[in-house]
């Protein structure tokens, strides 16, 4: 069964590669994969496969999708590209972060190693943050993504204390360019730089300009798996940007998806599983 699938997918890739052998740049990887015939080694760039998985998932009704993220801790090199991509994609202000990378030093000198753990919202299937919201401003969508309705949120911050993973951040209204120098001789100063902050963010598929004391200022904010990108068939910014291909994303309700295969592996774990919150972010260790 696996062999059949593998042959089929190799055939598809070969056909695609034959169409654009030079532009794609994936041919050498395929060749290596085919030559080595290593089980588990993907015959094409995982990004391409995840895009295909995404397209397939979007054909289904939202309630039949179950978005999950898989992070391979063995591959993460701690470059923080995902953090920066997320900040840029969602125009996050100072003090708000959706995906930081926790760095841990293990051992004592000279036997020291580093462990990097990217930490987005884990989009729990049993989210403790949702039940505590007094106005239903935060809720789980049919596809499992936990979101915040900025126009409903009153900013009580109860969900922040309820989240056992500290994955929620409050937008206090800080600005990147506030208190930065401004002079005629400067090419880019407070005024010019500040213009960037008036560019709307497309979070949640909205076109929202972050203005003084208006939402999302005064709201709790969190990772939403780049919902606005998913809805147009794009992967979350962190996944698309990961230089080590350590982050995977897809629909776990699709048995043929990459993430489904990855979370079926024995070396998978989730954070604080003992709580029973059923996070939808898995770690490969």
């Amino acid at each position: 069964m696996n062999q059949t699938k593998s042959t089929e997918s190799q055939g598809q890739v070969s056909a695609a590669a034959a169409e654009q052998p030079q532009a794609s740049g994936f041919v050498p990887l395929e060749s290596i994969a085919a030559a080595l015939n290593v089980p588990g080694l993907e015959p094409k760039d995982v990004l391409v496969r995840m895009y295909e998985d995404l397209q397939r998932a979007l054909q289904k009704p939202a309630s039949e999708r179950r978005w999950v993220m898989v992070i391979d801790l063995r591959k993460c090199v701690g470059c923080h590209a995902c953090t920066i991509a997320c900040v840029a994609e969602n125009k996050l202000p100072p003090g708000v972060v959706y995906r930081q990378v926790v760095e841990e030093e293990i051992g004592t000198y000279p036997n020291v190693s580093m462990r990097f753990t990217p930490r987005p919202c884990l989009h729990c299937d049993e989210p403790p943050c949702v039940d505590v919201c007094p106005v239903s401003a935060t809720y789980k969508r049919p596809d499992g993504i936990v979101v915040v309705d900025y126009d409903r949120c009153i900013g009580c911050r109860y969900c922040m204390n309820a989240c056992p993973y500290n994955s929620r951040y409050f937008d206090f209204g800080f600005s990147q360019y506030e208190d930065t120098p401004q002079a005629d001789s400067l090419i880019l100063g407070r005024e010019e730089g500040g213009v960037l902050e008036t560019v709307p963010s497309f979070e949640y598929g909205e076109k929202r300009v972050r203005q003084r004391e208006d939402s999302p200022i005064g709201n709790v904010r969190k990772c939403h798996f780049c919902l606005h990108r998913l809805e147009v068939g794009e992967l979350p910014a962190c996944t698309a940007t990961c230089i080590g291909r350590a982050t995977y994303f897809g629909d776990s309700n699709d048995p043929d998806s990459l993430v489904s295969q990855l979370i079926a592996s024995p070396n998978v774990m989730r954070l604080r599983e003992e709580l029973g919150t059923q996070p939808k972010v898995y770690y490969l260790v």
Partner: peptide
């Protein structure tokens, strides 16, 4: 004044989520 949006305090009265103990408290 501790609320991020103090003028939305009345949302708890018109959009209550009874599963939250904060709703009950208010």
């Amino acid at each position: 004044l501790d609320l991020g949006h103090p003028f939305r305090f009345w949302y708890v009265l018109v959009h209550p989520q009874w599963g939250s103990l904060m709703t009950w408290m208010i």
